[in-house]
Amino acid sequence: MSSDEHQNAAQSAASNAARVAKRLVVKVGSAILCGPSDQGGGAVREAWLASLAADIAGLRQSGCEVVIVTSGAIALGRRRLGLSGALRLDEKQAASAAGQAALAQAWQAAFAPHDVAIAQILITLEDTESRRRYLNARATFRTLLDLGALPLVNENDTIATSEIRYGDNDRLAAHAAQLVESDLLIILSDIDGLYTSDPRKDSTAQHISVVDAITPEIENMAGGVNRDAGVGSGGMASKIAAAKIAGGAGCDTIIAPGLVDHPLKAVLDGGAATLFCASTTHDGARRQWIAGRLKPLGRLVIDEGAAKALQSGASLLPAGVKEITGAFSRGDAVEIVSANGALIGQGLSAYDAGEARKVAGAKSDKIEALLGYRRRPALVEKDDLILRSGP
């Protein structure tokens, strides 16, 4: 294969990844949305945003679910408040408060011709670190996507402090991709992907189309934050860090040029970009997380019939639970053991400990009467359960 053929094949890898994705997260930075500050940054590039909206509308019509992670609130708000230069934390939070409404309005205006409803979600690092808040956020995303809305995600800069921030929206986008179990994260950048060195400083820098694994060598290729843009806080290093986070959750990442019109169409058409391949699958990442990374906070003792049902691929219903120990909340990990104490598996509880004790041993049709409100019939869903493979 010639070098040109190899390059074309590599570029088509990003295009193919975008074409087969069923759920996609797109990250748009301040410098992309508003333009560099020396070019009038601080106002939304409306024509460009309209072209992106057309791309996304086309993807949605083809059956792909899309989530947007957008920066820009501070860039828009500082202009409205007349702030300039380096901002203090309280000034950034004030600018964010002033800019959030304008940011959401700009996105909704861009999607109005396509009859797409925008749903703004503001999150902080705690929302993905706290298990209960993580589950609530995931449920909100799933409901919005089921309803055909377009989730518009940004960090809640108005309340987040430096200690509880993601630090940049590249990492936020990676966590959002993890949260919604996205197939692909596309980070729109001011550059068309990863190079062996900073092409703005090194004319011999070579473009890399596919990264199979993020090694220390790959990480060393990243330069610092793109200060030339004048807005935003990301850079190639943060984008690679984001790709690493997403890849560990089973999600591929593409870094693609974002300043061009119709940037997603350009990726689909085989334009220059860098594809970072995921290091595992969604299922593999989830299984490893449930089985190996979560410390169980409770124990469910089940009868022989329930044990056989689990081995056949069923969920764990309250009727088969004989005893519950520990203090756990909904979404926490619990061990599942037989009556003689043998470990059967580990899963995520759909109930907190108090609720679980109320319904243990009860038939599914009695749950609402026992609790006083409706809950899902399974105590541990089959998709949230990892069975022990050996004796």
Rank of each mutant, 00 (worst) to 15 (best):
K244G: 01
P216K: 14
A222Y: 04
S233A: 14
S233W: 00
A242P: 06
G232E: 08
T215N: 12
I240F: 04
A242I: 02
A243M: 03
A242C: 04
G230P: 07
I240M: 07
P216Y: 13
S233Q: 11
T215M: 11
A237F: 05
P216D: 14
E217W: 00
M221G: 07
D228N: 12
A222M: 11
A229C: 14
A229Q: 13
N220K: 15
P216Q: 12
D228P: 00
R227N: 15
R227S: 15
M236L: 10
T215D: 13
G234E: 01
G223H: 06
G230V: 05
A241I: 00
A229T: 14
I218S: 13
A249Q: 10
A222G: 12
M221F: 13
A237Q: 14
G247L: 04
A237S: 12
R227I: 08
G235T: 01
K239W: 00
I240S: 07
G234D: 06
A246S: 03
N220G: 13
G230A: 07
G247H: 03
G234P: 08
G230F: 05
I245G: 02
A213D: 04
I218P: 09
V231P: 07
I245R: 07
E217G: 14
A242N: 03
A241H: 11
T215R: 14
G250D: 05
I214K: 15
A246C: 08
V231D: 04
G235K: 03
N226Q: 11
S238R: 08
A241Y: 02
E217D: 09
A229P: 13
A229Y: 04
